[in-house]
Amino acid sequence: MRRRPGIGGLQTAAAARDQYRLLGENVAKIRTDMMKEQLSTFRSQLEDFARKHKNDIRKNPAFRSQFHEMCAKVGVDPLASNKGFWAELLGIGDFYYELGVQIVDICLATRPLNGGLINLQELCNLLRQRRKSDRGVVSEDDCLRAISKLKVLGSGFEVISVGKKKLVRSVPTELNKDHNEILELAQGQGFVTVDQVERRLSWTSGRAIDALDTLLDDGLAMIDDGHKDGKRRYWFPCVSPISSLTGTDSL
């Protein structure tokens, strides 16, 4: 801008600045308005969708998992807070908090039996038995989601993969690689012997006994000296859930 001398020049410059500012504000306002409008449209669409499929979300675990995926894609976490429209609309937060509480309960109750390591499948079964009166089904995906929320509590709830199976750990014991390999081996028959571990994993006998003793001390394994062949078997309740055993029901 060409500089003009005098009071008039200063006044014009000030007026121009004001006008620029006004224009700038206008543009910004229009932008935010547009954004707000888009957001509210999006939100109302999402709400509409959620309202329309409320029952599906509640009752159908597969649908629920897809809904979560969709939310994750657009950056919405319906579980982030128990307040807000998700909770009000769906009670979906409550659903997972409830699951979380029940999962903690089951883990604590079965801890003396399995040493604090439980098969995800068994956990789900126990959860279903417990909620049988409740509407809707609980899928493994729901369990995993609820457990991931429990992590916030720092209580050491964690899902670990051993071989093909997923195990839920509710005790702070760290499983090292040796222990993991033994658990994986045990998935075949539910138990291992020292011989088997040495042979299949090509370990020295000291290493096998050491690892098995640790698992025993942690309450993750139980010994069985009753087999005909006289070889001690180490059973792992976390890989062969007691609730799914078949055998005699009555004498």
């Binding site: 138990f191 009753g226 087999h227 078997r233 007691i242 055993l245 009555s250």
Partner: peptide
Amino acid sequence: FKLPNFFNYPP
């Protein structure tokens, strides 16, 4: 008489 599950678990 209904037996509990643990009755079928060898250990």
